[in-house]
Design a protein around this nucleic acid. Structure first.
Ligand SMILES: [Zn+2]
Ligand SMILES: [Zn+2]
Ligand SMILES: [Zn+2]
Ligand SMILES: [Zn+2]
Lengths: 151, 151
DNA sequence: CTTTCCCTGTTACGGTATAACATCCTGAGG
DNA sequence: CCTCAGGATGTTATACCGTAACAGGGAAAG
């Protein structure tokens, strides 16, 4: 799944550490470990799979959910609502509205930037709403699954 | 929550019955009952609240989840992924990509049509994906909650 | 040193959803 | 009428997802 490994992984983690420090927060062991697992996976991972993969005596659910909440808050990860899963953000550390393409066949996801914020903002305004966050998840078939190469 | 009642509710249910028949499907008792509960509520409802409200000797989870799946498939209801809740569609019976404004304070929701399908379609194409469904959920504050009239 | 604040560990629980299988109903065809 | 096939439901049990509540620890400020 195009996950990171070796030096690229180390570099990503170092960079994350710097960004976290710049935000006056702490990249603690459990936060760093969960981010590492997400980066290695290179795709959506379920919370309980993170718990199982955590290693080192394991982790209990609250540990992992707290780390995920932190990573999401700082822009290192996103939650995929329609999959109950989490994924590392390729723009690690920039908080932003995320949008995803999700393959219904193999589960592959791509983070996209369709540029819809302005239209949603306008629709919100028309109903008197102020906008504070946006979830966009598109379901479809990835190139491999369209041609039968899936799985 | 602007739910339907009395004649308006009966009319909506009759219309649903006709649409279902036109699609060569059946609006069975449990499906009709769940749709009725969603229409009465006039807003998002949790599956287990539907189960509790079902009455008539009650319903077990699979009964209600099956009805919800059916209603979603035929365009009578949508699932709100970020709330784990379900809501009747004001365009009952037209299958379409739904988009929602959700108040973070009071939970009020509005179904909108921001017209973003074209842009998402283009982004999907750029990644080789074919598009088959779209979930858009915007979080913010409704007019009442913005001015402190909430709750 | 002590206070404060944040982060963590642990237990236990509640909410969400589905698997698996038996049963029943309905409508088409003989 | 009878039978058969497909879809819908009933039932039990279980798996999965997420959080409440409280105790403990560690760094940094005063
Ligand atoms: Zn992102
Ligand atoms: Zn695929
Ligand atoms: Zn709708
Ligand atoms: Zn509100």
């Amino acid at each position: 799944m195009a996950g990171l490994a070796g030096r690229a992984l180390d570099a990503a983690l170092s960079k994350a550490g710097a960004r976290v420090a710049a935000a006056d927060e702490r990249l603690t062991d459990s936060r760093r470990r969960v981010l590492e697992l997400l980066l290695k996976a290179g795709g959506p991972v379920k919370a309980y799979d993170l718990i199982a993969a955590y290693g080192q005596g394991g982790a209990k659910p609250p540990t992992v959910y707290r780390a995920l909440e932190f990573l999401e808050r700082l822009g290192f990860a996103h939650r995929l609502e329609s999959l109950n899963a989490y994924v590392a953000c390729p723009r690690s550390g920039e908080v932003h509205a995320a949008a995803f393409l999700i393959c219904e066949c193999c589960g592959a996801t791509v983070e996209i930037e369709p540029g819809v914020a302005d239209r949603v903002e306008r629709a919100a305004g028309a109903h008197g709403y102020s906008l504070r966050g946006l979830t966009l998840e598109a379901r479809g078939l990835c190139p491999a699954c369209r041609t039968g190469d899936g799985h």
